[in-house]
Design a binder for these strands. Structure first.
Lengths: 248, 248
DNA sequence: TTGTTTTCTGCGTTTATTTGCCGAAATTCA
DNA sequence: TGAATTTCGGCAAATAAACGCAGAAAACAA
């Protein structure tokens, strides 16, 4: 096989699979690994691929671009914009923490008059910027990683509240496994919130759809509304719609 | 799987969940924990993530509670240095908010093991940076200006605690008028704290010595220790020493 | 076609990288 | 405090890359 042919073939493989192994290519094309390496080096020289130890990657493999901002901010803004429409004057709203919730807190209308109850200190800070919003902080032991309060005291306080809405952020959700998380304390808090709210709304970027963590929070049928950055008729969301969840 | 693939995967997981465990990743990618640790070290080297014991954290979630231009920082640092000596391992410490308290929180020894109970959200954030300190947040309605929780619920929670020390910041103090403040809710909280603590310590920059506000918190004889940036034998402080207050 | 030049390819050797494992030290947690 | 977990450093095996070289293949000119 000619060099140009090999190059075309390799380029095709890289773009198809996002990665190639020198050893693998060598076997496919029946040339020595040295030759493959030289090919890859040339293609990398031209910027067609990214050469790495053991093979090469497609240059659409974005790793160099350090997203110093919060991951997927735009998606989270989209979600927050949908979520904010559910909140009406006079409502009692329970929220967890997480960056999606923080985004929601940031875009709340200035004239909205509602009461927000939260275990998340960062979220409380955001809410406090809104003059017409009453903020209730649930107290207890502070979980240092997530900066939310956790424990029996917090749980029992949450259960004493009858909230209109409950916004849950930062989840993994799956049709079979339901809503899951990876922090024991957070799971307890979320459970309590779900049990005491009229409407449970899950905010989730599409990447966390069809994903599972170790600890179960609840089944999908306990969720009333699911909000993602995708359009509601997106294929990925249909299984949830079939389960009776409203998709926004 | 190629090293770069792993890096991309790890970075993705970190940004998605804000934290990852080495053990968990090792299982997911099917490589040894050593390899994961080396990956995390490399990514941390590039500033992509923050390496911690047992895994890594996203670096995107930086706390916006940076010490903005605080008035008289140096004086407050001096005060904090004196105050920190009073805290011993195992103590229960009640604190209000304010920048002096924040300064105290910042300089706490890393190996100090104590429980800090606070109504101040900014203070709670600072305490949370110390691995050996247990932080209890007193919940209730959030006072937006001072970012502390206030109300009957908070008061009754405070009264249920028997604290060893109580640090009060941000005051006006006068031999005749006693300790005074200008926010009704804050006054209530401080009263509750004083009533339930073995030792009451007032942190005050010298400007607030011999000054009065509208609302009285307590008489000077209820204060055990007064800490200012001035030397203890300073003339301005002698009237308080005569009243039986220990000066530091 | 034929001979010459240039490029390409595979091989052996050497060097570098990656990875897993082990034991000691450090850290965390109850 | 002591037990369990995590980290660190060194080591060894496996794999990949680099390098020089010789022969094969292709390109070119006459």
């Amino acid at each position: 096989m000619l060099k140009e042919e090999r190059h075309a073939y390799i380029l095709h493989q890289v773009n198809l699979h996002n990665k190639v192994l020198s050893s693998h290519l060598s076997e496919q094309i029946q040339v020595s690994e040295d030759t493959i390496r030289r090919d890859l080096a040339e293609l990398a020289q031209d910027g067609k691929i990214i050469k790495v130890h053991g093979g090469a990657l497609s240059n659409s493999f974005h790793l160099g671009i350090t997203s110093q901002d919060v991951y997927a901010v735009e998606d989270k803004k989209t979600i927050a914009l949908k979520a904010v429409q559910l909140i009406q004057d006079g409502m009692f709203v329970l929220t967890t923490g997480g960056t999606t919730i923080a985004e929601l807190a940031r875009i709340l209308p200035k004239d909205l008059q509602a009461t927000f109850i939260t275990v998340s200190l960062p979220a409380a800070f955001e809410y406090a910027n809104h003059p017409n919003i009453e903020v209730i902080v649930i107290g207890d032991k502070l979980s240092k990683g997530s900066k939310i309060t956790v424990g029996g005291e917090a749980i029992s306080k949450i259960k004493m509240i009858k909230a209109d809405l409950c916004f849950l952020g930062n989840n993994a959700i799956d049709v079979e496994d339901g809503l899951t998380d990876n922090d024991w304390d957070v799971v307890q808090v979320k459970r309590a919130m779900i049990s005491t709210s009229k409407k449970v709304i899950v905010l989730s970027i599409s990447e966390k759809i069809d994903a599972s963590e170790q600890l179960k929070i609840c089944d999908v049928n306990e969720i009333d509304i699911l909000i993602t950055e995708l359009p509601p008729n997106s294929k990925k969301l249909q299984p949830y719609k079939k389960k009776g969840i409203q998709i926004l």
